[in-house]
Design a protein around this nucleic acid. Structure first.
Lengths: 252, 252
DNA sequence: CGTGACGTTGAACTTCATCAAGTTGTGTGG
DNA sequence: CCACACAACTTGATGAAGTTCAACGTCACG
């Protein structure tokens, strides 16, 4: 028996796809339009939609791996991911946590192999877009290239901001900004910005913000004690989003 | 009286431009071809060369500022720069040290304002390229777009690697990798990889690798004491580049 | 020769990483 | 349904690494 788990909000710009337990039923007129959430807006044209392929990724599975040949760029339709960069030296680090509405593998544009490994944190659905990796899916439309350039530029800026954050700021500040970012992205997607669930482990968070997992745990507990947030396991609540935003929003 | 200061090595792919003291004399058949140094290779076509404008930037001057309207992308022909990102929150950080042969303002593609401030560390010469910021300077050539995508991708990867470096590694390791990077880039440009001069201050280095300037000073002194490098003020020498490369090269 | 920017060095302090032990929660197999 | 194993999370104690503040040295330039 199929139980309706949730319905993608229209705010996302997705078609009215309904996700069922254990089975996915994409609606017939599935538009491959990624919404303007988080500045993500590709807007593929009719003739390009055919290049899109649905794909399901189970939690823990890799959508693609570092070094693998680039064939697609992906739009996340549900679930969330982590992208890990591993250096030949051995150390690794999580560079991003893409979620529904984000375009991923943007750093593979113009490249023959993926530079990071993309792992699903939840069971997820993606839309694979062929052709774009070499900027050839454009037809005669120069507009999409402008937008793709903008998207890549956004991604560069995002990474650079993380870099600034890493430089000077305490553990608690880093986590505050991290949560602020998640909150904003949730809200941009039509969900609550003051009550959400973390899809990743403390270790993942630590890798992303550059802290040991114990420090993540302690700092979150500290913010809890100060009444700034309310956290239990992976459920996060922000009582006073106004103040929270004033304190950590300026970093983004 | 004009004294020839230096001649750009042909390895750079530049035309035989000769730089004179106080006055610049670009050769007539100035090709706007940025060499494949540091994976930088735009290779503008004849009809696009006309879009290039020479420009001189004195040490300490800003080529462009964060928030300013985007009009050009630039190719560095001589000198070196630092790009600084300042957050509305107040803290700033140096995100890159472009040098001759590098393409800069790549993160402005598809964007209306520059996201960083680009300051000259030396007296420098750049070549301003119009049109590219919106990917319109392409004519019918899709190839340049592929390469531009690749260049942006390279830039993203570079920043991400810095991110990994920041996460886990000691002060000395960070500085080692930083010097290794500079060494490689110098060598790729036809200069010595074991003897070069830093164009930036200790504070700049610290901002880039995420350390206090005193720590930079101390750590460099430490490497000096260990015989790994030989540093006096801004002159750096690496006696055993082989070992040095084995130790720090894997990060890049 | 003074002034200012850059660089070095020292000492006290702070923060976070690390190691270690314990807790909670979930899924698996008997 | 219970017991076990495993993963994620928490909490405490300790130490190392880097920041900060401060003083001093050095070099270039007017």
């Amino acid at each position: 028996m199929h139980q309706v788990l949730f319905k993608q909000p229209d705010a996302l710009g997705y078609g009215p796809a309904v996700f069922l337990k254990g089975k996915t039923v994409p609606t017939p007129n599935c538009r491959a339009v990624v919404p303007p959430c988080n500045a993500m807006c590709v807007g593929l044209h009719p003739q390009e939609r055919s290049a899109c392929v649905w794909r399901k990724v189970l939690a823990g599975q890799n959508l693609y791996q570092q070094g693998e040949a680039v064939r697609f760029i992906f739009a996340v339709r549900s679930g969330s991911f982590k992208s890990t960069l591993t250096l030949s030296e051995g150390s690794a680090r999580i560079c991003a946590f893409p979620m529904a509405g984000d375009l991923i593998a943007l750093d593979a544009v113009g490249r023959s192999t993926y530079t990071t490994t993309m792992t699903a944190l939840d069971d997820a659905h993606v839309c694979a877009i062929a052709g774009v990796p070499r900027l050839q899916a454009t037809g005669q439309d120069p507009d999409i290239q402008t937008r793709l350039g903008r998207l890549m530029s956004d991604e560069m800026l995002r990474t650079q901001k993380v870099l600034v954050l890493m430089g000077k700021s305490t553990a608690q500040e880093r986590l505050g900004v991290f949560l602020m970012d998640l909150s904003r992205r949730h809200r941009a997607r039509g969900f609550s910005g003051r009550d959400f669930t973390l899809p990743m482990t403390r270790a993942d968070i630590g890798s992303f913000v550059g802290l040991a997992l114990e420090t993540v745990s302690r700092s979150l507990a500290g913010m809890q004690a100060q009444g700034i947030i309310d956290i239990a396991k992976r459920r996060v609540q922000i009582p006073d989003l106004e103040t929270f935003s004033k304190r950590y929003g300026a970093w983004l």
